[in-house]
Design a binder for these strands. Structure first.
Lengths: 145, 145
DNA sequence: TCAATATATTTGTCATAGCAACTATTGTTA
DNA sequence: TAACAATAGTTGCTATGACAAATATATTGA
């Protein structure tokens, strides 16, 4: 029988798992010749969902901060996967759009991502997922206050 | 009733939760005047558990890679929290030890860390923890192959 | 023993992330 | 309207992290 720790070091488990997940994404993207990082994928995914988001909207949607998004967009634009268009209503804002190349890249990467998600959840079921989401949301809201 | 996605985007939940956890650690360390980062804490914690580990051992124990550990130890030594001592058996190796200041820093930070772990698991119980660990281990081993 | 190989660590480069400070613009309010 | 505050984005600085290459030392095998 396993002794219960007085405090639960759940962070370490998440940390090592996240690192391994990102490693798998990076490796798989490279294998199919898609030149993006895991974090760049997150941004492309948001834009595919809703094109023309502002950088702030991308930031809050992906839980990144403004400088990080600014620099990721720099790189994506340099690779011609996205473009910045100045907003007409608010001249401080940029709207970010997928280019044709960006959308193609997204579509090329998508089956890989879905494959990795399936692979990662192998041996687990929908109940596990519900429980997992409940735990994650609880931990998140515990720290949010 | 919630529709089940075909693929489960568990990574995003872990990502945002990890970020929030680290933010809380950083903020709390600062508040009590402990000048270390979350990742530096991880290394100090390993050394408190077993002093004199080599950098490689620290790396594999904390799921960091060798260059990252090398640089974290640089910073910890600069702050006089650890010291490198050359190994006698193997002249490639260093053994890393906590200094007195390092151990005091560890002891000062420890109750904060335990408080944050308790806070994070608030509203959750031991069964949740068992399930959480099972899920994390399963996901980890799914990607390890 | 000598050459090939493996291991421990360091260094360089780039991407991500957090924080602070800055610019430019917009909104508020006295 | 003029000052002030708020917002969107950028830039600088530092830390972490991944990866490749370099150095120094150890180990192995012909």
């Amino acid at each position: 029988m396993q002794e219960k720790e007085t405090t639960k070091n759940f962070g370490a488990y998440m940390d090592r798992t996240i690192k391994l997940i990102k490693h798998n994404y990076t490796k798989s993207f490279k294998e199919i010749g898609v030149d993006i990082t895991t974090e760049q994928w997150v941004i492309l995914d948001s834009l595919n969902e809703k094109d023309g988001l502002s950088q702030n909207e991308l930031a809050s949607g992906s839980f990144k901060n403004a400088p990080t998004v600014s620099r990721i967009i720099d790189l994506l634009c340099k690779k011609d996967l996205t473009e910045r268009k100045p907003s007409k209503e608010d001249r401080r804002k940029h709207h970010i759009f997928l280019t044709v190349k960006g959308r193609n890249t997204y579509l090329k990467a998508l089956p890989i991502v879905e494959g990795l998600r399936k692979k990662g959840w192998n041996g687990l079921n929908d109940e596990d997922y519900d429980h997992f989401i409940r735990i994650m949301n609880q931990v998140f809201s515990n720290f949010e206050l």
